[in-house]
Amino acid sequence: MRSKLESEEGRLVTAAQAGSRPAYTALVARYQRPLFRFLRMRSVSHDDAEELLQESFLRGWTKLQSFDPDKSFSTWLYTIAARIAVSWGRRRSLPLASDGEMESLTDESHPASLAEQEEEDRNLWDLVSTLLGESQRSALWLAYGEGRSAQEIALILGKREVAVRVMLCRARRRLAAHMQHLQEVGS
């Protein structure tokens, strides 16, 4: 099933590279929702993620000739989106907090409000988006939200595979520690 999808995607990519607008539109339709979720996990607001999604697809169209058809199209597209998100965050000086900054904010500034927000039925990704920094959030989403390998995540985020594995491990530990703390407070 996956190989069939990939071969269909390969045909779409080849057609889009030859200038077919419907083919690229089909690729957009295929990736607009997953790419939005990835960007939403990276950026701070819904509106920002929508803007970045549009920029990513527009950049994808203009750069399509440089894509190597032997490689994964989705990894290539996600790499473009990740780079746009990074440069956009720098340009607008948005609070795309680093991992360390985010930890200090969540630990010391508003522990009470975080504890209030943390409910049993709350989606864990909402906690991830408030608790972890940008890189850890992105890596965690790509790993567990999309089931990508550490190698793919490393390509998308422009990091080494070892660094991604360490990042994932630290992110899980931080989440686990926070959840344990909340359980202790609750009991």
Partner: peptide
Amino acid sequence: RLRLDAVDWSAEPSTESLSKLQTRL
């Protein structure tokens, strides 16, 4: 839980945003 919650995580682009994307494209 991360895998399960990812399926339910409600983060969708708005219809207006998607139609704007189609127009810009």
